[in-house]
Amino acid sequence: MQRGGRLRAEPPAPGIRELVETISSQQRVIVVLADRRHGRVFTWSEGTRMIEHLRVEAPDEPRRPEAAAGLAMISPHRDESERRHFVNIGRRVTRIHRATPAGYILFGGPEEDLAVLRLELSSSTRKVRLGTIDVPANAKKGEVARAVAEFMQAEQHDFQRQVVDDLIAAREDGTAVMGLRPTTDAVSAGRAMLLVVDAGYGKRSQVEALFRRALETGCRIQVIRGDPALHLAGSIGAHLRLPR
Rank of each mutant, 00 (worst) to 15 (best):
D60R: 08
V135F: 03
S188V: 08
F107V: 01
G174P: 11
R83V: 03
A68E: 12
Q153W: 13
G15C: 11
V93S: 03
T43N: 11
K140P: 07
R126T: 11
V128G: 06
G218M: 10
V93N: 04
P59C: 08
V148D: 08
I168Y: 04
A137F: 00
F42W: 09
V196M: 04
A13T: 13
L194H: 01
A137C: 09
Q222Y: 00
D158E: 14
R212D: 09
T48F: 10
K203Y: 14
R8A: 04
G237F: 02
G5I: 07
I221V: 12
V20T: 13
S24A: 14
D227A: 11
V223P: 02
S75K: 06
G47A: 10
H157C: 01
Y104D: 09
S24E: 10
G237C: 08
E46W: 13
A72F: 12
G200R: 08
F86E: 05
E52A: 09
G179R: 06
P110N: 06
E57L: 11
R55F: 00
R126M: 10
E208H: 11
R98A: 04
A137I: 07
H157S: 06
L194A: 02
V116N: 10
L242Q: 14
G234I: 02
L167W: 00
R84C: 02
Q156I: 05
E18K: 13
A13V: 15
A58D: 04
H239D: 09
